[in-house]
Design a binder for these strands. Sequence first.
DNA 1: TTACAAAAAATAACACTGTTAACTTACAGG
DNA 2: CCTGTAAGTTAACAGTGTTATTTTTTGTAA
Lengths: 200, 200
Amino acid sequence: MGVLERKLRQKEEVRNSILTAAWSIIQTEGWQALSIRKIADAIEYSVPVIYNHFESKEAIMLEFVKEGFRQLRDHIQAQLSEEDRSCQQLEIAGKAYWQFAFANQATYQLMFGMGLPPCERARQVPEIQSFSTMLVSLIQKVIDHSNQPDTNAFLKFHTFWSILHGLVSIQMINRSATPDELSELVLEDAIYGFIKALVV
Amino acid sequence: MGVLERKLRQKEEVRNSILTAAWSIIQTEGWQALSIRKIADAIEYSVPVIYNHFESKEAIMLEFVKEGFRQLRDHIQAQLSEEDRSCQQLEIAGKAYWQFAFANQATYQLMFGMGLPPCERARQVPEIQSFSTMLVSLIQKVIDHSNQPDTNAFLKFHTFWSILHGLVSIQMINRSATPDELSELVLEDAIYGFIKALVV
DNA sequence: TTACAAAAAATAACACTGTTAACTTACAGG
DNA sequence: CCTGTAAGTTAACAGTGTTATTTTTTGTAA
């Protein structure tokens, strides 16, 4: 008598179809073009059904923000080595961050500012915490080869993240969508500067 | 027979009233809440009149982006000294940038990404050029005490701007709207790191 | 002063948006 | 088979940017 289970499974399926439909719209037309009616058309349900699964359009987009932070964390972590505690790890992390941003531009733009009112975000996205923690402990390792994050490591993490996000943003705003030679140089320059200031 | 002049003057007045109305809406309700009808209500004209002065709502917002870059440039330049060519000038510039961003949050958010599709921007805002030029020549001065900008200075400018914008963005997204003690530390840390990498 | 052309402004519409109240249909349990 | 609940629908509300059409105003020449 798994009728309830089946219903839950069906509900989950609809939820997923909403997310995949929304995602395909964002990818093909950009997050500005995402609309509830377009999603409803794509999943072949009426509009109010979507509101049985998500509180609002923003809640749907927040789902991708969360996914984005998880993926970003995993993408960076995948390229780091557990043993190596040298500052080259920071270079790897920085370049991985950069690479993720331009390989997933729609996601990255959704993650940062565009489309969502700024201050609500952090509170609604605990994934940011998880992402932050990873980078903090990476820096901690580089600083003093320990695993106990202190205030200084947090401060340095904040600086590091800011530099990376700034590089990506300015690149996306100012030049074309795909990074060129010069910007790669700028990236290396900035990371190098950060490391230099860190280890001395 | 200054009837034509009077008409031009009146047209200019309406244009200005549109901008001031739009600006007051942005300041009180945020740029998300700006709408053509609200502007029309405020200036006591019908909606299509606005389209005789601006091509679109985005064109109106772009006007504030331009103003923003002009003001940012002037704000920084006002705090620099012509004679001093030490790297402390960079610290001053960096802190002035930071201060401007949080003293003019609506403007800053309008200038960077939020609300406008990214890639069109740079082409439509020549003021970015002017702002960039100022910072490039500042860095050139610090590097080799000359006034001839070279590729290296441009690269360093890009890095510097990225760091600053990153700091502001992460602060606005992650923490509260007003910067706290820790973030001031991060700011100094980042600027210090940049200068250190620059002069050595 | 009146007639007329041209410029200015207003109305009203189009095609959308997010969101929700009210109604209908489908379906499982008694 | 009937009934109550839950799922899904239609239709509406209150907006949005933008524009075609119509009206009003205004300056000029007869």
